[in-house]
């Protein structure tokens, strides 16, 4: 009888709009976030299609074209040893995006399990892990990255490791805080009561509920990682010459500011627009995933 009464209600309707769909609908409505996403996608396309769209070889020098201002032949001009700036910007997008992606993945892969474990286990173990995380957070981001890059040796790979290691504690702490906030919810107690093993409770019941804030943090962390890679390359501790990277292009440009200002304008503009777009998208994502906002 009861079954018949509720027959006409589908599960979908009873539950309302699924949260992910609602978040997506709200995200699409945010113009700033969508502009950000479009620009990020644009940069990804540039990085992927670099071999086909680059007008010149990014490391080919030409003594006949040293520090030439922007022209039809070289849209963004040439650098101090005659390399095409546009070609280097196009190829340099690979270093930036790769650094952003790899270092954040590394930070997630290490930080999230630590946070899950620490938050779920609690007690003295949690206390000890959190003091270690505090210690890592006490060393300023770039200074720790510089020190790591210095001791590991300067290269793009080591810069990515250094950036990932410095971002890891942020994810560990965020994950732990989220675990603590859902750990005593009724549905977790229920999962425990029906005899689920610990690992299943953590992976199947806790983890999916803490994904949204991690996603937002990961987007904003990618923006930070891209600035960090550019900073390390600017200091000479990231991508090594002659491979192109926006940060190292600015490092060289610094010495020719009076003679070739275009060398400094374009790489900086590229970093700025990519980072701003990621921040715009991240902010929009946070608002869209926040159930309290409408």
């Amino acid at each position: 009888m009861t079954a018949q009464t509720f027959d006409h209600l589908s599960t979908e309707e009873a539950l309302g709009e699924p949260p992910w769909q609602r978040a997506l609908r709200r995200l699409v409505k945010r113009r700033a976030a969508m502009t950000g996403l479009a620009i990020v996608v644009f940069f990804i396309l540039i990085a992927v299609t670099a071999p086909f769209i680059s007008p010149y070889d990014p490391i080919a020098t030409s003594w006949a074209a040293v520090r030439k201002p922007p022209s039809a032949a070289h849209l963004f001009g040439t650098d101090d040893i005659g390399r095409d700036v546009l070609a280097r910007i196009i190829w340099g997008s690979r270093a930036s995006l790769l650094a952003g992606l790899v270092s954040v993945m590394l930070a997630l892969a290490v930080g999230v399990p630590i946070g899950l474990f620490s938050g779920y286990a609690g007690g003295a173990l949690d206390g000890t892990i959190m003091r270690l995380i505090d210690a890592m957070l006490a060393i300023p981001f770039l200074i720790l990255a510089i020190a790591l890059a210095a001791f590991l040796g300067p290269s793009l790979t080591n810069a990515m490791i250094a950036i990932g290691v410095t971002q890891m504690p942020v994810f560990a702490r965020l994950t732990r805080a989220q675990v603590l906030s859902v750990k005593h919810e009724d549905y977790i107690e229920a999962a425990r009561a029906v005899g689920n093993p610990q690992y299943r409770i953590v992976l199947r019941h806790i983890f999916p509920n803490i994904v949204p804030p991690l996603l937002v943090q990961a987007t904003l962390a990618t923006a930070m990682a891209i600035i960090a890679e550019a900073s390390l390359s600017f200091l000479g501790l990231g991508q090594q010459p002659p491979s192109p990277s926006w940060g190292s292009m600015l490092n060289t440009a610094k010495n020719f500011m009076a003679q070739a200002p275009w060398m400094a304008i374009w790489p900086g503009l590229a970093i700025f627009s990519l980072v701003l777009s990621l921040n715009l998208f991240g902010d929009g994502l946070r608002d869209a995933l926040d159930p309290r906002r409408e």
């Binding site: 900073s231 600015l250 700025f272 701003l276």
Partner: peptide, 22 residues
């Protein structure tokens, strides 16, 4: 503020040098 957070400060420095010094 979002612009301020997104602009790499070494680039901002270079731009200011280009404007105010060069």
């Amino acid at each position: 503020a979002l612009w301020g957070l997104s602009i790499p400060n070494f680039w901002l420095g270079i731009l200011l040098i280009l404007l105010f010094s060069v």
